Amino acid sequence: MRRWSYTALAWVLALTLCAPSVALAATQAQLKARLDQLNKQSAAAGERYSKAYWALDETDVKLARTNRRIKSTRKALSAARKLLNEHANAIYRRDELDLLVFLVGSSTFEELVTRADYLGRIGKSDAKVISRVENLSTRLLAQRDELKAQRVGRAKDAKHLRAERDRLQGRLKSTAAEYRRIRAQLDAQRAGGRLPAGVRAVAGPNGMVFPVAGSHYYSDTWGASRSGGRRRHQGTDIMAQRGTPVVAVLSGRIRASNNGLGGKCLWVTADNGWSFYYAHLDRQIVKSGRVRAGQVIGTVGSTGNAQGGSPHLHFQIHPGGGAPVNPYPYLTAME
């Protein structure tokens, strides 16, 4: 009887010790599910913004194409008018007497016919030049009308984009406070109760820290056409409010750079040799030296060619410091 009591007591103690771990796991799952719900609330607005952004991009490509055609037409028209002027000046300089002398001066009938045919050909050549000038002028007017219509369309697209941008930012703002609160709880539990000093966020299931520490939206746009097919998207755009903290994905060394495309950028070269590229930042908080995983290194912005659009982080992953790979599956495993 006493032996049975000891056995029962041992089972009770074992279940008691295991209970916190089970509860903790359930709590983390619940917190993660709530974060996913908050991010999904921004998804519809994010998708509408993306459609509006690329509609405007397509319009810009059409505008650029039309401008190139107008430039080519103007060049051809200028050359045709120059040739026509040269012919007109030549005709003006030779009067009817000159033409008569030219014809009468023929020594034989065959030569007379030849000279008359020559003058006829000059007339036909002038007629072709005149026709070309008329055709090019008509084409130029049509292209200018097309350009005018495209500019009106672009203004509408730009207005629609601004509306969708503001709607997306409003949605992200509405979930920001709750997102921070729940994320802080989740990070504290993942860190065992307390975050290390100087760290804003902790690693997710794949051992990497999600690069944006705040409410956000992103989708898989790897390889998507950009600028009318002139380039391909080699990263993931993570939409967030301007000023949202950006953190180091892994520990390593950091360096800052600036360029017209990415604006204010940061490169983190992790201790494992992988490189991470952060672009369109509003601020570069850490520009050199070592950084820890989860340390704040900058803030989300819209610098570079993202000016006027919704603030976001353009994020790239370069395994082993080589060519970029699709960040999307890595990002989903970081959350």
Rank of each mutant, 00 (worst) to 15 (best):
G294L: 02
R171D: 06
P196H: 10
T16V: 10
S72T: 14
L38G: 04
G289A: 08
R200F: 04
R74N: 12
N135V: 14
R242G: 04
R144D: 05
D95L: 00
R2S: 11
S310E: 07
G105Q: 05
G243R: 06
V296E: 05
G308F: 07
H318P: 15
V152N: 11
E58Y: 09
A55N: 11
T269A: 11
G263Q: 04
T303N: 03
W54M: 03
K124S: 15
A29M: 14
H280M: 06
K124L: 12
V212R: 01
A25I: 05
P319T: 02
M334D: 10
A10V: 08
R226G: 00
G322H: 13
K264M: 06
H216Q: 15
L13S: 12
F109R: 10
A116K: 03
A188E: 04
N135L: 13
E134N: 14
E96F: 12
A306C: 07
D166H: 05
V286P: 02
N39L: 13
A197P: 10
S107I: 06
K32I: 08
A188C: 08
M334A: 11
K156C: 00
A44E: 11
R144I: 07
E96D: 15
A10F: 10
Y118L: 15
A270P: 01
R34P: 06
S131V: 11
R132E: 11
N305S: 14
I238W: 00
V209H: 03
F276D: 00
D126Y: 08
W274I: 01
A127D: 14
V249W: 02
